[in-house]
């Protein structure tokens, strides 16, 4: 994704006028998302480094990280499985899907497996209500999930 500079400003450097982006702070979220994708979490040290990069206080970075549910300060599993629990999904049996995952992974929703391979979470509507029950596996949306399919989904993910 090539970033587009949202707002340019002209500064003088070594006697020459150059154009730079002055939306550095506005890049914070994309930077954090990138770090989350690569490492599975954002560490204290990462927050310090990012703050230095953008010229802001680390606490500001921390406040942003803790606001968004897709960013975390604790290491998540290699694969994050999110089961939608909006009412349309609940009506179609999403809780049975949650229980099937809990049983297969031997963890509760909200936890990460000991080998750091899987995190299981409940989440709000993921825009798949017409194909409920639906789950989000990493970046992929999967609809019409039945409890019987859970073992195969986990098996396929282990091979990735």
């Amino acid at each position: 994704m090539k970033p587009v500079c949202a707002a340019e400003k002209i500064i003088e450097k070594n006697g020459r006028k150059i154009v730079v982006c002055d939306d550095t702070r506005s890049r914070l979220l994309p930077i954090l998302q990138d770090r989350q994708d690569r490492r599975g979490y954002i560490s204290d040290k990462d927050m310090q480094n990012i703050a230095d990069l953008l010229g802001i206080h680390p606490v500001e970075v921390y406040s942003v990280v803790t606001f968004y549910s897709f960013l975390s300060t604790e290491k998540k599993g290699k694969h994050v499985i999110r089961v939608s629990n909006c009412i349309s999904n609940v009506m179609k049996g999403s809780e049975k899907v949650v229980r099937a995952f809990e049983k297969a992974l031997k963890i509760k929703a909200g936890e990460t497996t000991g080998d750091r391979q899987f995190t299981l979470e409940r989440t709000g509507c993921i825009g798949m209500c017409d194909k409920a029950p639906a789950i989000m596996v990493d970046t992929e949306l999967v609809g019409n999930v039945k409890p019987g399919m859970v073992k195969k989904i986990i098996g396929d993910l282990r091979k990735r």
């Binding site: 702070r25 506005s26 890049r27 998302q33 968004y68 549910s69 897709f70 989440t123």
Partner: peptide, 19 residues
């Protein structure tokens, strides 16, 4: 990044600005 309130236009702008 998974925040429903960001659909509110001023919250969305805050989010775009990195807040």
């Amino acid at each position: 990044s998974g925040a429903y309130v960001c659909g509110e236009e001023t919250a969305l702008i805050e989010s775009l600005e990195g807040n």
